[in-house]
Write a protein that binds this DNA or RNA. Sequence first.
DNA 1: AAATTTTAGTTAAACGATATAACCAATAAT
DNA 2: ATTATTGGTTATATCGTTTAACTAAAATTT
Lengths: 341, 341
Amino acid sequence: MKKPTIKDVAKAAGVSTATVSYALNGRTDKVSNETIERIKQIIETINYIPDFSARSLVKNQSKLIGIVIPQTESHKQLILENPFYSEIISGIEGKLREHGYHLLLSGVNQGESYLNLSVQRNLDGAIMMGIYPEQFYDGFKKIKIPIVLIDSYINDSYFKRIGIDDEYGGYLATKHLIDKGHSNIGLITGAIRKDGVVEKRFLGYKRAIREANFFYNPDYVFEDSMSYEHGMAAGKLIASKHPEITAVFATGDMVAFGAIRSLINEGKRVPEDISVIGFDDISMSKMFIPPLTTIRQSITEKGAVAAELLIHMIQGNGEQEANEVVLPLTIVERATVKALG
Amino acid sequence: MKKPTIKDVAKAAGVSTATVSYALNGRTDKVSNETIERIKQIIETINYIPDFSARSLVKNQSKLIGIVIPQTESHKQLILENPFYSEIISGIEGKLREHGYHLLLSGVNQGESYLNLSVQRNLDGAIMMGIYPEQFYDGFKKIKIPIVLIDSYINDSYFKRIGIDDEYGGYLATKHLIDKGHSNIGLITGAIRKDGVVEKRFLGYKRAIREANFFYNPDYVFEDSMSYEHGMAAGKLIASKHPEITAVFATGDMVAFGAIRSLINEGKRVPEDISVIGFDDISMSKMFIPPLTTIRQSITEKGAVAAELLIHMIQGNGEQEANEVVLPLTIVERATVKALG
DNA sequence: AAATTTTAGTTAAACGATATAACCAATAAT
DNA sequence: ATTATTGGTTATATCGTTTAACTAAAATTT
């Protein structure tokens, strides 16, 4: 048995396919209410479900949204291991679905580009997380696909942005440590890149330090990647080479986990010997032992708002809407920071 | 500037669209090599990218794979917070992409069904994680969509399955505790449902206990959901009502995390006072403090194999292939289990 | 050299929907 | 009585591909 098409519905209802299409799209100016009712009955009984590909083709819209997230270097896998991404995706997907859109989750193979994918699949829009080479952005502009940027400070009115005040977050984290009496404060962080969130958090860190009239020591900055492994490596270095460091600001919770782990391995107690503050408050952070003190942002909300912004861009029913949404952040004090002395 | 279509290519090459299509699909019996070369040049210069919707329509295949995973009860979000799912998805996506398929990540709204989605989007196949109401399976069979089941013991030759020997895993975990001298062993677990992995792990638990000639005590079984929160609740109960329990088998790592946390909250030391063993070895488990002793399965591999199986089903180039793949498991001893006494 | 096969294409009909111009009654306005 | 309006419907073109059926020329076989 083949799947029923709009023709089958039309035949069964004794009307033309156009009428069925109108009924389907609720054009009451075109079809009488009785006919709509009758058609709906028939659709129900023969179990007709419209085909998105066909619709896509003529309407030139796919109701499909793409999402650009970092991949492993081999391009084999998405880095979904970091719960930060999964949480945000969860937020995005929920909101998209609410509005009748679906999420296409795909990385790109070596050599290919996400732009190809976008064109092939006729994506109605995409959400990009993090920062990418410039040609990426240009490409999207060229093919005129609406884009929302998460965690990016790229300043181009073509894109809408959603994020938090990362500079302030970095400041807040560092200030918190300073307020607790720490002065030798290490920074463990992912790659500091122009227009990226990490750069801003780093700036906040420096501001807090300067404001307190402490000496900014570049040796205290451990920059590599936003991974558990880097946290481990940096923690080890701190324990062995910089015993004078009494507090650490990790610009991501996963990094903080790694740092804490290696610090403990090296015989330090957290927070008694050394304090650690993280950033993001991924769901794991409250479960971690000791529970992580961190800068909290609502990750799923970030995803949901990004999706909302994107849908506005697509549907263009936006007169004077925001080009940028900045979500609030707070510090959540748990158990990894302790006053000095 | 509109996006170039196959017609533009045909015009530029001075051939018919059919020829371009044949060239695109490498039909050397239909097009000469020189023409193919010429067409490829043109495609390159005008930057033509075929439209999947159109192709979908005529070929009746979307190159789109769906994935069914549990949602929150409100149907608002997917439960991607549990890293187990994200890791598996990561594995699935990578393998799919390698074969030219893409992943559609979507939950379903209240009242709707995933079947609708499958038909609308013309899914070429789907991967289901966990177990669902029976009508779900019947629906897929009716619309003839190939399905691979992850973590399900539903025995129906229509479906292929990928999993591990959960009964043995449960046995192994429990046996490990017994070998360490424990006899009062609690079980903290998600819902025990027919044909689900949890049921098998539970069976393994009971087998190990009976085999050791211990008394199986139903009061030691704390069944609810596979969540951190349930782990917390059960851990608390164990500490307060069952001080005689010296070891716990949690059928999922997240549950184990919760249990450990509340056990510690209640003043118990892990593993000195009480041992805990988990299941799955999600990436977080090695980062947890104390590092979790658990039953390890390769989660991303599970995803990758599921994708491979599915692609085989779809492409039907499978003569006598496996209907079921059982991946190995091992115990990984870390720091949450200690010999008694 | 005639008959057959092969090669390299072309033509036109699908696929399943939507948009739109055109049409026809019946009713309302002139 | 004539024209304009409205509501309901149909026929047809279209979106961008693929593919079965066909054809003309070149190559091969008899």
